[in-house]
Design a protein around this nucleic acid. Structure first.
Length: 114
DNA sequence: CTTATGACTTTCA
DNA sequence: CTGAAAGCCATAA
């Protein structure tokens, strides 16, 4: 598991920073974040970074605004459940719909475009 | 240097 | 259309 305790500007830090830039009421995809970091194929890294998101950042970083390419909340993390993420999004005015037990967001409408 | 892992993505049967 | 498999990238051991 990654734990970049050093002050080096790791991918994690960059991911956190980009997430913080996502405006309220908008969402971004893992691939999008990865592309902004300069590595369009490192989407899984983004997911990983958010998975390891430390508690102190959890309250400051809008991690819920980052979803997969289909606009689906595909978190498997037990601590941060999809339902919780969906609630956070709804609280921001983002419409979250449930299909077959999965939460979906309308990317056409809410995708963040920098 | 080699392996393993992960809240992803794309391709193929 | 659906599900499985391989591909990709950064970090840890």
């Amino acid at each position: 598991m990654p734990s970049p305790k050093n002050n080096s500007l790791s991918v994690f830090e960059q991911v956190y920073r980009l997430c913080a830039q996502v405006p309220r009421g908008k969402v971004a995809t893992y691939g999008q974040i990865a592309a902004l970091l300069g590595s369009p194929r490192a989407a899984q890294m983004v997911g990983w970074a958010l998975h390891e998101l430390p508690p102190d950042k959890l309250s400051k970083i809008p991690w819920q605004r980052v979803i997969n390419r289909e606009g689906r909340i595909s978190t498997t993390c037990q601590e941060h459940t999809a339902s919780l993420q969906a609630q956070l999004l709804k609280k921001e005015g983002v419409t979250v719909t449930m299909r077959q037990g999965n939460y979906f967001v309308d990317l056409k409408k809410y995708l963040w475009q920098p």
